[in-house]
Design a protein around this nucleic acid. Structure first.
Length: 808
RNA sequence: GCCGGAGUGGCGAAAUAGGUAGCACGCGCGAGACUUAAAAUCUCGUGACCGCAAGGUCGUGCGGGUUCGAUUCCCGCCUCCGGCACCA
């Protein structure tokens, strides 16, 4: 019988579908397991070979868990709002909803062909009104709790996409999607106050099991630092200005201050003075450069004196205020006190001949002299010795942080302050294809009024044109009939918000909807959430670590705080897969023409082979290049399995050997799956099959092997399982167990070393006594020449491994 | 610059509570068997150098160190990938 992957795979996919085999049950006494992958964006290009890497990995986990007796939820859905579809709509004039429907149909077909054990009955689509009704509802909860607010602020504006971008969407000063240089623009934007959750998001990381890289990246992104804000006054103007300092140990070294070019105080400081003209010119030039994204590239720092001084709260003289290019406007106060103990400050002062006053020195007197002479900048050294203030003279920089902050507070110089790099989330988009923001502005109430919850969803109206307007408003703004409405509160005239939500919105809570996807009264019932959440294991790409992962944690924590979800953290465990590169080692991309189409692969070699290959190609968390030859090797393995079950008959005399190997294989596969070491798990199964070809195998052995193969290659496993005479799906079988005693060899190869070099090997019982092993080793013919005439210092014995004779 | 991760055969990679590196597995390549032939399949070989061979020497990015023994641990570098990037 020939192995016909097309026939077999189709047959089982249909059967699984008909039987609803992978539908998760909400009311169940079994222990639950919630496996999650990042749902795809249904692009016109169809599935990418990168998708199955993550999906197969979690499918293997999900299938194994079912066999281990868990009630498994492994859902799928579509993150269908977003730019590519809208851009395609602009180009073709076709409604995005229509395009999306087609793309989803195509993705569904492609995903089903790969045999994933998704619960298709729970599939959600973020652009479906029955779904985004609840996205809007959650937004209103944010609004009602004061965490959604409108602010006029400079946003990252992409002139090509005509859209405002979140900080996270700006890559190297360019638009993440189209690469065009990003400009700054003032706009009224809806913001989500994620910074209010900075500490909670940080704390939550302690209680979750995430891949270390992801934790570190999130911590970095949140960027918490603890320091002091100095209270000080600009001389002659009587303006109070604070300066943030995260390294206050060396505050006595401060000799000047800098302010960001964008800072509103700059204008007030120079108004009507001789500095007004040059400073204004400087500021304009720098801001222009910054907007063009050209400032970061050249590391050169520039500045200009404002003619003003800030009163030094420490009484060591007034600090001249400079406008400096390197000051970040929206971090801290945008105003910084500078000293010899910071590299940038030091370089800046040197460039403009501003006096410096070091107060920390190395213990080495020669080096200390160099610091006194300002030869280089000395900073952040745990062992640096302070000279000022007098109360801290002689103490080490690394030991005085707490004390000095206390001192600064006691003296009234400033107060303790925590800063974050995290900024609030720019939540509105001037686009059509997103969730409408369910608020209306009422002139009479002078406020944004929420649409009553029972009137949700606020559906996206059909428009004629999908182009953003020239003013940068969304196409919805041109729909006057839609925009003009009445205020739900006072009944007076009102106008709708025409901005929509970013596509991070729908994906920030989809894992909750999966728990109860058809619910019409709530976003998910308490009971369903209680049972399923948190997600036990979430696998996804590293590229989503500071975007989707952080945002969805934020939403979940907020929903927890208002009492509508049962757990603080949404995901217990987070792992990440490596990228699949093209055969040439480059990133796969349409423009390079090196994209591998999964449809063609499945057609040619079958879904089981593709799944196995993607798991076998290399370590799961590492980037690996695609290899057409490599996939043929895996195909050969699949065919070998097929032949094993059709051609090889049992041969009694080798059953013992194979039995041991089977136990070892079951152990290896069982453990490797948990550690996501799929490549070595498959290699172990290959070894087993190679051996079984030589020795034959019994029915029980064949069955056990099929069970461990099933999560990887479910179609062929089902088919062979059926051929062995079983009527029930193999996915209903219990996961095989192994006998630890049978996983160790009785006989081993003992290595004999002389001075650490292998000179001989011999087969001995695994539990050979130390004395016997040593005695035998010394008597070996191959060993004798190496020890003859030499003094034996000692003989090292490692149980089950080696004897090492040390001679001199 | 800072923070992660990684450097091992012709290639993807195995092996790290220190213990046979690469006869884990797979690909590729070479030879052979089967075949009229090809494909498929099966068998054997495949790090470098020396040697007819037995065998030996060198080899896990580079330089040191600890150890009977280091791909694994420590110190100092180099290169590549990912992230952050004037955050005071």
């Amino acid at each position: 019988m020939n192995y016909d992957h097309k026939k077999i795979e189709k047959k089982w996919q249909q059967r699984w579908d008909e039987q609803g085999l992978f539908a998760a049950k909400n009311n169940d006494t079994r222990k639950k397991f919630y496996a999650l992958i990042e749902f795809p964006y249904p692009s016109g290009e169809g599935l990418h070979v990168g998708h199955p890497r993550s999906y197969t990995a979690m499918d293997i986990i999900a299938r194994k868990r079912r066999m281990e007796g868990y009630n498994v939820l492994y859902p799928i859905g579509f993150d269908s709002f977003g730019l590519p579809t809208e851009n395609y709509a602009i180009k073709t004039g076709r409604p995005p909803a229509e395009i999306t429907k087609e793309n989803i149909a195509n993705f569904t077909r492609q995903l089903k062909r790969l045999g994933f054990s998704f619960d298709w009955e729970r599939a959600v689509t973020t652009s479906d009104p029955s779904y985004y009704r609840w996205t809007q509802w959650i937004f209103l909860q944010f609004y009602k709790h004061g965490l959604a607010y409108k602010a006029k602020m400079p946003i990252n504006w992409c002139p090509s996409c005509k859209i405002g971008l979140a900080n996270e969407e700006v890559v190297n000063g360019g638009c993440e999607r189209c690469g065009a240089p990003v400009e700054e623009r003032e706009r009224e934007q809806w913001m989500l106050a994620i910074t209010k959750y900075a500490d909670k998001l940080l704390d939550g990381l302690k209680e979750v099991d995430y891949i270390e890289r992801a934790k570190v990246q999130q911590q970095h992104w949140i960027g918490r630092s603890e320091g002091v804000n100095y209270r000080q006054t600009i001389k002659d103007l009587n303006i109070t200005v604070e300066a943030y300092d995260s390294v206050p140990q060396t505050f006595m070294a401060q000799t000047f201050a800098v302010i960001a070019p964008e800072h509103p105080l700059v204008q007030r400081m120079i108004e009507g003075t001789e500095y007004e003209k040059p400073v204004r010119a400087f500021v304009e030039r720098i801001i222009k450069k910054k907007r063009a994204g050209k400032l970061d590239l050249e590391k050169e720092m520039e500045g200009i004196f404002t003619g003003r001084y800030v009163e030094n709260p420490f009484g060591t003289g007034d600090l001249p205020i400079w406008v400096a290019s390197f000051v970040v406007a929206d971090y801290g106060t945008g105003f910084v006190n500078c000293s010899a103990c910071d590299e940038r400050d030091f370089a800046f002062a040197k460039k403009y001949n501003i006096p410096l006053h070091p107060v920390m020195f190395p213990q080495d007197p020669v080096e200390a002299e160099k610091i006194r002479n300002l030869e280089y900048c000395y900073h952040h050294d745990e062992n640096g010795i302070l000279t000022e203030p007098i109360e801290f003279k002689g103490r080490k920089w690394g030991e005085i942080r707490r004390d000095i902050i206390k001192y600064i507070e006691q003296q009234g110089f400033g107060y303790r302050k925590v800063q974050y790099k995290l900024r609030d989330w720019v939540f509105s988009r001037q686009r059509y294809w997103g969730e409408p923001i369910p608020l209306v502005y009422c002139d009479a109430c002078v406020a944004w009024v929420p649409i009553p919850e029972d009137q949700l969803p606020l559906e996206l109206p059909k428009v004629e044109k999908y182009q953003p307007t020239d003013t940068g408003e969304s196409p919805l703004a041109a729909m006057h009939d839609w925009v003009q409405t009445t205020c739900p509160k006072c009944g007076g005239p009102a106008r709708r918000e025409t901005d929509t939500m970013p596509n991070w919105a729908g994906s920030s809570w989809y894992f909750l909807r999966y728990c109860d996807p058809k619910n019409k009264k709530e976003f998910a019932s308490k009971k369903a959430l209680q049972y399923w959440t948190p997600v036990d294991w979430y696998n996804g790409g590293m590229e989503h670590t500071v975007l989707h992962l952080l945002y969805s944690r934020f939403w979940n924590q907020f929903l927890y705080d208002i009492g509508v979800v049962p757990t603080r953290e949404p995901y217990t465990k987070r792992t990440s897969h490596g990228l699949i590169m093209a055969e040439d080692g480059e990133k796969m991309s349409k423009s390079r023409g090196n994209v591998v189409n999964p449809d063609a692969v499945v057609e040619q070699v079958g879904a089981d082979t593709l799944r196995l290959y993607e798991m076998f190609m290399g370590p799961f968390d590492q980037a690996v290049p695609w290899s057409t030859d490599g996939i043929m090797g895996v195909r050969r393995f699949v065919e070998k399995v097929w032949r094993l079950f059709h051609e090889i008959t049992e041969s009694q005399n080798h059953r013992i050997i194979l039995g041991r190997l089977l136990h070892k294989t079951v152990k290896k596969v069982t453990e490797d799956i948990e550690a996501m070491k799929y490549n070595t798990a498959i290699s172990a199964m290959m070894i087993f099959v190679n051996e079984a070809h030589a020795t034959g195998l019994s029915k029980e052995q064949a069955e056990a092997f099929l069970k461990i193969l099933a999560p990887f290659a479910p179609h062929i496993a089902e088919e062979l399982w059926e051929q062995l005479g079983h009527a029930e799906s193999i996915s209903r079988e219990p996961w095989p167990t192994f006998d630890s005693a049978l996983c160790v060899d009785e006989e081993i190869e003992l290595v004999i070393q002389v001075n650490g070099r292998v000179r001989d090997r011999l087969r001995v019982a695994a539990d050979i006594p130390e004395a016997d092993a040593k005695a035998q080793a010394l008597e070996r013919e191959k060993v004798k020449p190496w020890i003859a005439g030499k003094k034996i210092e000692k003989v090292v014995f490692v149980q089950g491994r080696l004897v090492n004779i040390v001679v001199t």
